[in-house]
C-alpha cells in the first residue's frame, strides 16, 4: 500500500518534467522569431530586443534550460511582461472565482451524470436511455459559449430570473448572491462534462451488469435496486472516477470560455487578458499551473483506487 502510493507519486515526476520541457521547447523551437511575434506588428526593434531579453532568449540554450529548471524548482512561474508582477501573484489574485466555479461544476456534474448514466444503463433501450444518449451527443456538439449566450438570452434577458453576468464572492456578498450568479456558469460549464460522465457511467454500468457476480446477487434474491447500488456501482466506481479526473482537462478549457462569457474575474479571464495583451509569460505560467493541478488531481484519483478496489494494493 505504502509502496503503491510512493510509486504513484514518483510516476508523476516524469510527466511533470515532460510538461516543463515541452513548454520550454515550445518557445525555443517555434518557427520564426517568437519575440517579434509576441511584440506585435507595430513594435520597434528595441521593443523586440527588450522582450527577447525578458524571455531570456539571448543566452545559450543550456543556460536557458538551467535557469528554467532552477526557476521552476523555486515554484516561480515567471513574470508578466507588462505588469511586471510574478505570475504566481496574478494567479493568487484570480484563484478564488475559478476554484469555486470548478468545485460547484464538479459537484453538480457528478450529482446529475452518475444517476443519469446508471439509470440509462439499467433501462438500456428505453426512452430514458435514448434521452441520455441524445443529451450526451448534443452536449458534445454545442459550443460552450453558444450555450452560455443562449442561457443568458432566455433566462436572464427574456425571463429575467437570473443575473446576466458577473461574479459575487460568497465571502463578501453571502452565499445566496454567490449562487444566483453561479447557476448559469455552472450549467454552461457542466453540460459537456455531464455528457462525458453520463456516457461513461452508462457504458461501465452496462458492462458490469453483464458480470457473473451480478447474476450471483440475483440468484440470492437481491432486489434490483440493491443489485445496482451494492454490486454494479461499486464495481463501476474506478472507471467512473477515472473519467471524472480526465474530464478535468476538458473543464479547464471550458473555464476560459465560461469566464469570458459571464465576465467572471478568474484564471480563465487571466488567460484571455494575457492573449489580448500578448503577454506570453503569463500564458506559459498558466499552462504550467493548470497542468500541475491536472496531474495532482489525477494523482489523487489514482490513490483513491486503493479505497475503491481491494485488488489494487501494490
Amino acid at each position: 500500500m505504502f509502496f503503491y502510493i510512493i510509486k504513484r507519486i514518483l510516476a508523476t515526476i516524469p510527466v511533470m518534467v515532460i510538461v516543463a520541457l515541452f513548454v520550454f521547447l515550445m518557445l525555443r523551437l517555434s518557427p520564426g522569431d517568437p519575440a517579434a511575434v509576441i511584440a506585435g506588428d507595430y513594435a520597434t526593434t528595441e521593443d523586440v530586443e527588450r522582450i527577447r531579453e525578458q524571455l531570456g532568449l539571448n543566452e545559450p540554450i543550456p543556460v536557458q534550460m538551467y535557469k528554467w529548471i532552477a526557476q521552476l524548482a523555486r515554484g516561480d512561474l515567471g513574470t508578466a511582461i507588462f505588469s511586471k508582477l510574478p505570475v504566481t501573484t496574478l494567479i493568487g489574485q484570480r484563484l478564488e472565482p475559478t476554484l469555486l466555479l470548478a468545485l460547484c461544476t464538479i459537484i453538480f456534474t457528478v450529482l446529475v451524470a452518475v444517476p443519469l448514466g446508471t439509470i440509462a444503463a439499467y433501462k438500456a433501450g428505453s426512452w430514458i436511455d435514448r434521452f441520455v444518449m441524445l443529451f450526451s451527443v448534443a452536449g458534445f456538439s454545442v459550443p460552450i459559449f453558444v450555450l452560455g449566450y443562449m442561457l443568458i438570452y432566455v433566462l436572464s434577458m427574456q425571463l429575467k430570473i437570473l443575473p446576466v453576468q458577473g461574479y459575487k464572492s460568497p465571502f463578501e456578498y453571502g452565499l445566496w448572491e454567490f449562487l444566483r450568479h453561479m447557476i448559469l456558469p455552472v450549467i454552461t460549464l457542466s453540460v459537456i462534462y455531464i455528457a462525458l460522465i453520463a456516457r461513461m457511467t452508462r457504458a461501465t454500468v452496462q458492462e458490469v451488469l453483464q458480470e457473473d457476480y451480478v447474476r450471483t446477487a440475483r440468484a440470492k434474491g437481491q432486489s434490483e435496486f440493491k443489485v445496482l447500488m451494492f454490486h454494479a456501482l461499486r464495481n463501476a466506481a474506478v472507471p467512473i472516477v477515472t473519467v471524472i479526473g480526465l474530464g478535468i482537462a476538458l473543464m479547464i478549457g471550458g473555464v476560459v470560455v465560461t469566464e469570458s462569457v459571464y465576465n467572471i474575474p478568474g484564471l480563465g479571464r487571466l488567460v484571455l487578458d494575457a492573449v489580448l495583451a500578448r503577454d506570453y509569460p503569463v500564458i506559459q505560467g498558466l499552462i504550467l499551473f493548470f497542468s500541475f493541478i491536472y496531474i495532482l488531481i489525477n494523482l489523487l484519483i489514482d490513490l483513491s483506487y486503493t479505497l475503491l478496489d481491494p485488488r489494487i494494493r501494490y
Binding site: 516524469p14 510527466v15 511533470m16 518534467v17 515532460i18 510538461v19 520541457l21 515541452f22 513548454v23 515550445m26 518557445l27 517555434s30 518557427p31 520564426g32 517568437p34 511575434v37 509576441i38 482537462a249 479547464i252 478549457g253 476560459v256 470560455v257 488567460v271 492573449v275 500578448r278 506570453y280 500564458i283 506559459q284 498558466l286 499552462i287 493548470f290 497542468s291 491536472y294 496531474i295 489525477n298
Partner: peptide, 23 residues
C-alpha cells in the same frame, strides 16, 4: 510518458500558446 505530459496540458491553452508564439 510524452503523451501523458501532452494530455495533461489543457488543449485550448496549448493551442492558444502555440498560436501566440507562431502567429
Amino acid at each position: 510518458r510524452t503523451m501523458d505530459g501532452l494530455m495533461s496540458i489543457p488543449a485550448i491553452l496549448l493551442a492558444i500558446a502555440l498560436i501566440s508564439l507562431s502567429g
